[in-house]
């Protein structure tokens, strides 16, 4: 039972088609609210955590313990004037932040969240090929960054876009290779091994324990994709001012900002679903969602710690790392996964 069917039940007096359409709309709305609230909580936690690491106090003025600080910030961003560069390429310039944010929210619709008491699962889209869908949607986000860099008629932004392309090309491959290993292992135990839900149901041990190398490669690729400090080459603030988002202001900038935190959260969710068992935990029954969030939160905190303690890596060393170390390691991982699969098949 999931939230979609619950809603459909609620609207069923209105007829079959109308009730399904309404249920989809409400569930999508629900998900957007979930994503927004979790991002706000995450940014608040990040700022407090950063303040602790740096021996500061952090936001404490707006609301109790500064809890409303992020809402105040968001209101400020919405109220700000959108400064548009004169030589911009208008359509892509305005499309880019939306592309980043919309593809981020879309990716959240596919993940299997596990049950949450009476409501059931939050997942909107059910499909047999969710993995392909998920990584297809994730691949849209860098296009938004590149468009932003090219269309804002700024040399810093252009350099940032070039770096973003180089980064994404060299880190999508190890990421996909380590996902492939999981699909391979799942295929020995389930007929529909491209669906996240059946991968989850097929495991007897979390895949992170079966293949820690894959977890390592995938987590690093996710860090690189989310582009925070060791790998924030696209928007390296001490070199390229703000990279591809240099010319953006107001809520358009806010979308890039949310996009970055959103991809950290998304990455942590995907890692915990694929490698750490996702919604499964000691107390089965209806707490799957909570387990998933706890696992993701731990990964998010690890990401923040990495962010706050590392300097930025240089672009050539970064790409070397991707091609010369991560891809071979991912290949070895694939071979190991094949051996495990064969073992299961026998």
């Amino acid at each position: 039972m999931n939230i979609l069917l619950r809603l459909q039940e609620l609207f069923s007096p209105l007829g079959h088609l109308v009730s399904y359409i309404l249920a989809y709309i409400f569930e999508s709305l629900f998900l957007v609210i979930f994503v927004t609230i979790s991002l706000i909580v995450m940014i608040y936690v990040f700022r407090k955590y950063m303040a602790r690491v740096q021996q500061r106090i952090g936001p404490n003025r707006v609301g109790k313990f500064g809890l409303l600080q992020l809402i105040a910030d968001a209101l400020k961003l919405v109220g700000k004037e959108n400064i548009l560069p004169r030589n911009r390429d208008d359509l892509p310039y305005k499309l880019a932040p939306a592309m980043v944010f919309v593809s981020l929210v879309l990716a959240f619709t596919i993940l299997p969240y596990g049950d949450f008491f009476y409501l059931g699962s939050f997942t909107v889209t059910h499909s047999e090929v969710t993995i392909i869908l998920l990584f297809g949607i994730i691949a849209i986000m860098p296009i938004g960054e590149v468009l932003a860099g090219i269309s804002s008629a700024n040399k810093y932004a252009l350099l940032g876009a070039l770096r973003a392309v180089a980064k994404d090309v060299s880190f999508e491959i190890p990421m996909m290779l380590s996902v492939l290993a999981i699909v391979m292992m799942a295929s020995a135990r389930t007929p529909s091994s491209l669906s996240l839900e059946s991968i989850l149901s097929s495991e007897f041990l979390p895949y992170g324990i079966l293949e820690p190398i894959g977890l390592f490669v995938f987590f690093i690729s996710m860090v690189a994709r989310a582009s925070y400090t060791p790998f924030d080459l696209g928007e390296s603030d001490s070199e390229l001012v703000s990279g591809h988002s240099t010319e953006y202001s107001g809520m358009r900038f806010g979308m890039f900002y949310m996009g970055m935190f959103g991809s950290i959260f998304l990455g942590s969710l995907i890692v915990s679903i694929l490698y750490l068992g996702g919604p499964s935990g000691p107390l089965e029954s209806s707490l799957g969602f909570i387990w998933l969030i706890i696992k993701a939160a731990i990964l998010v905190l690890i990401s923040f710690t990495v962010w706050l303690s590392m300097p930025r890596i240089r672009i050539d060393k970064f790409i070397n790392f991707g091609w010369k170390y991560l891809i071979p390691i991912a290949m070895i991982n694939l071979i190991l996964a094949g051996i495990i699969t064969l073992g299961w098949g026998l």
Partner: peptide, 8 residues
């Protein structure tokens, strides 16, 4: 170099 923490 992109390290925020030592500054503080």
């Amino acid at each position: 170099l992109g390290m925020l923490t030592p500054f503080f």
